[in-house]
């Protein structure tokens, strides 16, 4: 078995403009996903909007540069994630297809085993 981090990227402004029922549909989708794949879900969370992000980089000389905002400014921002256990990529993709992401999509990244 292996672990995959599924990153949920969505268009934040489109989500903000959407009808409240879209939010309910999304939450229902996550609940259904959790019920169905509970055994494979190792973790997961929804994130606050990217406008609440703070980026920290080591500065050239010493110390750190702290800036407001996400690491990369893109139309679709990271909005949540799941950590899933799967036998292989096909299994991970099959699960990822069931994650609600009406305003974007998801990215499946294998977790790199260390040691």
């Amino acid at each position: 078995m292996a672990e995959y981090l599924v990153l949920i990227y969505e268009d934040e402004s489109a989500m903000g403009d959407a009808d409240p029922s879209a939010f309910a549909t999304m939450m229902d989708g996550h609940r259904a996903f959790g019920d169905k794949h509970g055994a494979a879900i190792r973790g997961g969370n929804a994130l606050q909007p990217s406008s609440t992000s703070t980026t920290i980089r080591a500065a050239d000389g010493e110390g750190f540069t702290i800036t407001d905002g996400a690491f990369a400014e893109t139309k679709e921002a990271l909005g949540g994630y799941y950590l899933l256990e799967a036998a292989d990529l096909d299994e991970a993709i099959a699960m990822a297809k069931e994650i609600p992401a009406a305003f974007g999509g998801v990215e499946v990244r294998p977790v790199r085993p260390l040691g």
Binding site: A87, D88, L89, D90, V108, P110
Partner: peptide
């Protein structure tokens, strides 16, 4: 290898 693309017939 790293993403574990399986070696099988779908």
């Amino acid at each position: 290898a790293s993403a574990r693309i399986p070696y099988r017939v779908p």
